[in-house]
Design a protein around this nucleic acid. Sequence first.
DNA 1: TCTTGACCCTCTAGTGGCTAGAGAGATTAT
DNA 2: ATAATCTCTCTAGCCACTAGAGGGTCAAGA
Lengths: 140, 140
Amino acid sequence: MQLSIGDLARATGAKVPTIRYYEQIGLLAAPPRTEGGQRRYGRAEIERLNFIRHARELGFEIEAIRELLAMTGKPQASCHEADSIALSHLAEVEARIEKLTALRDELSRMISECSHGRICDCRIIEVLADHGQCAADHPH
Amino acid sequence: MQLSIGDLARATGAKVPTIRYYEQIGLLAAPPRTEGGQRRYGRAEIERLNFIRHARELGFEIEAIRELLAMTGKPQASCHEADSIALSHLAEVEARIEKLTALRDELSRMISECSHGRICDCRIIEVLADHGQCAADHPH
DNA sequence: TCTTGACCCTCTAGTGGCTAGAGAGATTAT
DNA sequence: ATAATCTCTCTAGCCACTAGAGGGTCAAGA
């Protein structure tokens, strides 16, 4: 089961230069090479890369992934760590969801008002302008 | 009403270098300067920058903001454009919400399972590893 | 008026997480 | 043997900022 870098890319959905980049930053180990110098991977690399890709998609930063990966090798002692990484990430994720939900509502309201037939006051601009930080508002 | 760049920063929550950056890329017009060469802004800049900041927070890219800003000057004719920018953004936002919601569920499930007292199998790693692209799965 | 301290200037370089391209070598199928 | 398709390294670029060096300016108080 020898995979070229392209095979690994196809198997995981990652791009070839991304795989090399991950190797460069130490997220993937440098694999053995052919006589000609080409990288050859095994099944395990597919899993590891899938792990990375999925975590990235879910918004984990490289450093967090690095920590998580470091734990997979160790015994279960450090589960607490993985847990706290996930926990702090959870808060972040929830904040993002909230913001995005507010945005979605705003966007769809803007759109529906706009296409409602009224003279286009372009609420889009208004709405976006209104909600800035209010440190300098309230001018009395 | 003459504001220094620092005043503008405080008024909007943007950072000073960010304001200069926005000027550099043409998102904010170059303001008049004092004799000594320091930037001086007026009220209008606060609004424009608030607009930009809010839009950025909501995930609009600089180019989209540029387009939106270009429209604010023009008559209402181009509302259709603003609308379609918002519309395409809406789809994106909804996709992101979906992904993040899935993640949140996964994360909180992992966390609750982990702290449930069971031997820590660290489902976190499992869960993250499982959901990669499946192009190479189904090995029969 | 002078001084002090906070502010501001420009410029270059760095960040994260890739992505693109050049120019050359390796592998594979026919 | 040859052609097509990888793959290699290396450098540079992307976005949207952020940080730091080295110096100049402004406004308030003594």
